Amino acid sequence: VPQRAWTVEQLRSEQLPKKDIIKFLQEHGSDSFLAEHKLLGNIKNVAKTANKDHLVTAYNHLFETKRFK
Rank of each mutant, 00 (worst) to 15 (best):
V1F: 12
P2L: 05
P2Y: 04
P2K: 03
Q3S: 11
Q3T: 12
R4H: 08
R4D: 07
R4E: 08
A5D: 15
A5V: 14
W6R: 01
W6F: 06
T7L: 04
V8N: 15
V8Y: 08
Q10K: 04
Q10H: 06
Q10D: 15
L11D: 01
L11C: 03
R12I: 10
R12W: 15
S13M: 03
E14S: 13
E14G: 14
Q15A: 14
L16A: 06
L16D: 01
L16P: 06
L16Y: 05
P17A: 10
K18W: 03
K18M: 07
K18H: 07
K18I: 10
K19N: 12
K19L: 13
K19V: 13
D20M: 11
D20V: 14
D20R: 13
I21V: 06
I21A: 01
I22A: 03
I22E: 01
I22G: 00
I22F: 04
F24R: 01
F24D: 01
F24L: 02
F24H: 03
F24Y: 11
L25V: 02
L25P: 00
L25A: 00
Q26Y: 06
E27I: 07
E27M: 10
E27N: 10
H28T: 07
H28P: 01
H28I: 06
H28F: 11
S30C: 08
D31T: 13
S32N: 08
F33I: 02
F33A: 00
L34W: 00
L34P: 00
L34C: 05
A35I: 13
E36N: 06
E36G: 07
H37P: 00
H37M: 13
H37C: 09
K38D: 10
L39V: 05
L39I: 07
L40D: 11
L40H: 09
N42H: 12
N42T: 14
I43W: 12
I43L: 11
K44A: 15
V46Y: 04
V46R: 05
V46N: 04
A47G: 08
A47Q: 13
K48W: 09
K48Q: 14
K48M: 15
T49E: 12
T49S: 08
A50N: 08
A50T: 13
A50G: 05
A50Y: 08
N51M: 08
K52D: 03
K52S: 04
D53M: 07
D53L: 08
L55S: 01
L55F: 07
L55K: 01
L55Y: 02
L55M: 04
T57N: 13
T57K: 09
A58I: 13
Y59H: 01
Y59V: 03
Y59G: 01
N60I: 14
N60H: 07
N60Y: 06
N60T: 11
H61L: 12
H61S: 15
F63H: 04
E64Q: 08
E64G: 04
E64I: 07
K66D: 06
R67K: 09
F68Q: 02
